[in-house]
Design a protein around this nucleic acid. Structure first.
Lengths: 169, 169
DNA sequence: CCAAACCTTACCGTTTACGAGAAGGTTAAG
DNA sequence: CTTAACCTTCTCGTAAACGGTAAGGTTTGG
């Protein structure tokens, strides 16, 4: 289900807890949520991979749902793909641009403009998919190689068993 | 350094260049061959990932075709999968055992013994494949996620174009 | 209002995966 | 037999990706 609900206005208004204002998480809560450490999250911030939606009065980092999604994305890329954080940053640039596009989209009145934004978003996602698929393809190559070695053994095995265990070589 | 007797016996006769004796490469040559640096190769040796088939009189490392294959495998795993060298070591343990199996297989006369060795080899390859496939599966999950986001946008786009560019929302 | 529980920045430490010499031995060509 | 071009082991350095801890501010339940 892809219900990235449109959010109320901008997300930087920190203070007054309005009705239905989604909870902002502090760093430890966000970390627990996605399975990272606060230190790692700060590190990603230093590298420019993420920035908290807000800061409290006393400068505590406060993360919203989008941030958590982003953090999860970063963790997935880090854990599963083996991309460096720098490469992840590249992938995330497209992500950031998409976020910007969403905001513009909501304000765009001109259908042509909206179309442009949608197409741009699709293209960015396509680039992400292509990057991931390339990685998959290369790993699949290795799998194929392994399977051919396996086939070779299976062949030997079949020959052996066809003999009913009575051959010498 | 005296542990690879079985290996050494078959391929480490360094001196007399017999007929058809395949060339042994020194470290820089091997490195060029697979796209690594000598330093990296030595590093892999320190970690126990590879060991040269032989050493020259003056202790130069000498690599044979199998070594080169192994190095290529290491490089692939490192570059494409993002596995740590430690994890690669695990995958390679199965590889090493397979090499040993091959040697034993050639000497085994008992069909039952040969069958056992073949089955063992197949199981090891299967484990490698499983490891790789798991990684692929996780990356595919990310692809699927991206595609669902994409589908969402395409949907919007379709709605927009169905309007003939005349709607507001 | 106070203390425990969080958080901040800052900086040093660690692991991984090598890169870059230094000091000296080995090979292959001439 | 030289000597340039490799190679050896050793040690130190480095970049990436955090971990840990110090010194000090912030939040919040009681």
């Amino acid at each position: 289900m892809t219900e990235l609900a449109s959010r109320t206005a901008s997300k930087a208004a920190a203070a007054a807890p309005e009705i239905g204002e989604p909870r902002l998480l502090r760093i430890q809560e966000a970390a627990d949520e996605v399975g990272l450490t606060p230190r790692a999250i700060r590190h990603y911030e230093e590298l420019g991979l993420i920035k908290p939606a807000a800061r409290s009065e006393g400068a505590y980092r406060l993360y919203d749902a989008d941030d958590v999604t982003r953090l999860r994305f970063i963790k997935s890329l880090r854990d599963e793909t083996g991309f460096s954080l720098a490469e992840i940053g590249q992938l995330l640039e497209d992500e950031a641009a998409r976020a910007l596009n969403r905001a513009r989209f909501r304000e765009a009145r001109d259908p042509e403009e909206r179309r442009r934004l949608l197409v741009d978003g699709i293209e960015r996602i396509d680039r992400q998919v292509t990057t991931l698929r390339n990685k998959v393809a290369r790993i699949e190559e290795m799998v194929a190689e392994a399977r051919s070695r396996r086939a070779h053994l299976v062949e030997h095995l079949a020959a052996l068993e066809a003999d009913g265990g009575r051959a010498k070589r």
